[in-house]
Computed example of a mutant assay.
Amino acid sequence: MEVRKGRLEKILFVKKAEKELASTEYQEAISQFEDEGHKLYDLLKRKEQLEGTLQDRLQHGIPIENLKQQQFFIGNLEKNVLNQQRKVSHARAFMNLKEERLKEQSIECRKYEVLDDKQKLFIKQNENRIETSFIDEMSILHYTHHTNR
């Protein structure tokens, strides 16, 4: 019985290690997603500021060369925003994948914890049964030994 108990505890140890690894990977994916999201936010904020500055300058008059330059910068920012949106989308998908893996590992780990608990309960009940049987036999022997005197 001890061999099975040892095997189950080893499997549970491995499953917990896998769960911890999945948790670490998920935390890293969250961090990456947040970093990419902050970069996108910064780009959008910069674009909004540039467009606001352009609107102010248009109302007060702006040379054509400056207008072309501002439009060029805004066009580049829009390209960067689209690229960053793709990165954020990819990071979100990666984070969701890692979250799903963590959920699966947690469920798997919980299954083995339940099995381990059941096995420990079974072993404890078996030990109690053996102990009760031993005490009964000792009582009978003690009783027969005293009645024979």
Score class of each variant (00 low, 15 high):
M1R: 15
D42L: 09
H142S: 08
F33G: 00
K111E: 13
L77A: 06
T24Q: 11
D35L: 15
D42S: 07
R110S: 11
Q84L: 10
E28M: 14
A91Q: 02
K15W: 09
F72G: 06
R7D: 04
A17S: 15
F33Y: 04
N66S: 14
H142L: 04
F72T: 15
A91K: 00
P63S: 15
Q55A: 15
T132S: 10
K120G: 07
K87Y: 13
I30D: 01
T53Y: 09
E25Q: 13
Q27E: 08
H38A: 14
V88H: 00
F33S: 03
L141A: 09
L115N: 01
S106D: 07
L82M: 13
K15I: 11
R110H: 10
D56T: 11
L77Q: 07
F94C: 01
F13Y: 12
L21W: 07
R92I: 06
S139W: 08
A17C: 12
V88P: 00
E20W: 12
S31K: 15
E48I: 00
L67E: 09
L58G: 03
R57L: 14
E108I: 06
Q69F: 09
N126S: 11
F13E: 10
E78T: 12
F13N: 07
I140G: 03
V3N: 06
N128A: 02
K103L: 15
L97V: 02
L44A: 00
E108S: 08
T144N: 10
K45Q: 14
E131D: 08
F134I: 11
E104S: 14
L40T: 00
G6N: 12
M1P: 10
K124T: 08
E100F: 04
L12T: 04
M1L: 13
L82Q: 14
N96C: 00
Q125L: 13
T53W: 07
K47H: 05
E137V: 06
H90D: 13
I64T: 15
H60P: 05
R129M: 05
I130N: 01
R7E: 04
V81S: 04
K87Q: 14
